[in-house]
Computed example of a mutant assay.
Amino acid sequence: MNQRARIAMSDDDVTAFLEGARKLQLATINPDGTPHLVTMFYGLDEGRIAFWTYGKAQKTRNLERDPRVSCLVEAGEEYAELRGVLLYGKAERVDDPEHVLAIGMEVARRTTPGVADELLRPYVEHTGRKRVAYVVERTKVVSWDHRRLT
Results as ranks from 00 to 15, higher is better:
Leu120Ala: 03
Arg48Leu: 12
Arg93His: 13
Met40Glu: 02
Arg129Thr: 12
Val85Gln: 01
Tyr54Phe: 15
Asp45Ile: 00
Arg131Asp: 04
Leu24Lys: 02
Tyr79Ile: 04
Gly20Lys: 13
Glu19Ala: 14
Lys140Arg: 12
Leu18Ile: 00
Asp66Pro: 07
Pro67Met: 11
Arg110Ala: 04
Ile103Gln: 11
Glu19Phe: 10
Val94Lys: 00
Gln3Gly: 03
Met1Glu: 13
Thr53His: 03
Arg6Gly: 00
Ala5Gly: 07
Arg22Gly: 01
Gln58Met: 06
Arg4Ser: 13
Met40Val: 07
Asp66Phe: 06
Pro113Thr: 01
Val136Lys: 03
Met40Pro: 02
Asp66Tyr: 09
Pro67Asn: 10
Glu78His: 13
Asp95Ala: 10
Thr15Lys: 15
Gly128Gln: 02
Gly33Ala: 08
Asn62Val: 14
Asn62Ala: 11
Phe17Thr: 00
Ala57Asp: 14
Val135Arg: 11
Trp52Ala: 05
Glu19Gly: 13
Arg93Thr: 12
Asp66Cys: 09
Val142Cys: 06
Gly128Asp: 02
Lys56Ile: 03
Asn2Pro: 09
Arg121His: 07
Lys56Asn: 15
Val14Met: 11
Leu44Lys: 10
Ala108Tyr: 04
Asp66Gln: 08
Met105Pro: 12
Ala80Glu: 08
Ile7Ala: 01
Leu37Gln: 11
Leu120Met: 08
Gly104Ser: 03
Val135Ser: 06
Gly43Ile: 03
Ala80Arg: 06
Ala21Trp: 03
Val100Lys: 12
Asp11Arg: 14
Val136Pro: 06
Gly84Met: 01
Lys140Ile: 04
Val135Asn: 09
Leu18Tyr: 01
Ala102Arg: 11
Ser70Phe: 01
